[in-house]
Design a protein around this nucleic acid. Sequence first.
DNA 1: TGTTTAAGTCAACACTCGTTTACTCATGTA
DNA 2: TACATGAGTAAACGAGTGTTGACTTAAACA
Lengths: 229, 229
Amino acid sequence: MLTRHRDRARARTGHARDTRKVQTRQALLNAALDLLEGGKSFSSLSLREITREVGIVPAGFYRHFRDVEELGLALVDESMTTLRHMIREARETPLDPEPIIRRSVETLARHVHANRRHFRFISREMHGGMLALRERIRREIQSFTSELALDLGRLPWLNQWSAADLQMIASLMVNAMVLIAEELMEVPADRPEAQETVMRIAEKQLLLISLGVPQWRSAPAPAGTAASG
Amino acid sequence: MLTRHRDRARARTGHARDTRKVQTRQALLNAALDLLEGGKSFSSLSLREITREVGIVPAGFYRHFRDVEELGLALVDESMTTLRHMIREARETPLDPEPIIRRSVETLARHVHANRRHFRFISREMHGGMLALRERIRREIQSFTSELALDLGRLPWLNQWSAADLQMIASLMVNAMVLIAEELMEVPADRPEAQETVMRIAEKQLLLISLGVPQWRSAPAPAGTAASG
DNA sequence: TGTTTAAGTCAACACTCGTTTACTCATGTA
DNA sequence: TACATGAGTAAACGAGTGTTGACTTAAACA
């Protein structure tokens, strides 16, 4: 609350009028994220709460968003940018399969820690809540999965796999990562050793999945799912 | 809505007074589940909505629950009973590793289809929403995971594993199952072929995990996580 | 300098909300 | 048959909600 008001004060020192507008808009987004840090879900978040937190009058909200849902969509965009930065960093990683896992988990943990609110928002709204947000989030994550499937297909020991099977294993890994992220968020910020534990388990789980991959050829079901395109 | 009122009417035909009370209570639980079928989350569900759906006056709610949260906890109990039935059935399954997967996924799909509302409620409230519900749900699922870990430890090719590692792989499988259940719920009820697709992918994912298991011995990290009594 | 623009204010509106109190009146019991 | 119980009713309360229109006032511009 106090922090918000300071944000607001800083916004007032802006020079151009457009700049000030952008800053208030940002304060609204931040206020919503802060309010979500308490147990509440986004759909039970009121316009008046948000404006109260920022320190403007309810009617002022409409200068920035048509309604709370539109603010939610803006939050999805903002959070997804954070996610994209993380993924870009994770992709600039060596190819050897063991350190790739360790480094990916480490990257995930670092970004979750640095952007708790964004990750919390995404992980909550992707399951329940408002339909529009959920669909947007799922579409984004789906596209991450496809990118990962593409990456996997470039690995030498996977370049014979069908697109559908690559998608299958990619989604298994992305899902695992999403759940790991959720567990990392549950860890209290001041207990790094608990975080370490979660990370070790996560590494083991991803390693287990990757160990299954070379065994696949001998086992898969007869029916072939053909790659398209 | 109409359905609810019919429920109410049926309740009126009950004989004993206790019976009637039980039926109205059940109608309240059903009304909440129905309302959740629309996009809303439980925490944005009002006492008045629920009683309106059932066809009683708001004050009548207090004859059955102290507040909406208590109704939520009752819903968790009810849903968990459903889950337990499913798991009991899944455990009465042969040991061979390939049909065990196929049968487990098939069992899951059947129960999700037959108890959509319970599964939807659980999968939503386990991530976001009210703290009390989330904790209760997570504790239950945690206990399912531990049971599965115990089962796994009885398998001949796994009986040398540490308790921690069994827990690790069990949670990987349970998590995969939870996400599969969520995807099964997204499938429109009238498109069985889409459901088939999800099930095939799910089977492949679980198979992939199980293929990694025999490879584990040669690979795990040096540090041993000891099993506790 | 005077005029336009638009972020934020103010006050009111018609709601819905949870909760309370006193009540009715069908049911189960003595 | 008379009485006690308790599920559901009726009405009101104070508080919080989204949305409105007319307003101020500082910045942008000609």
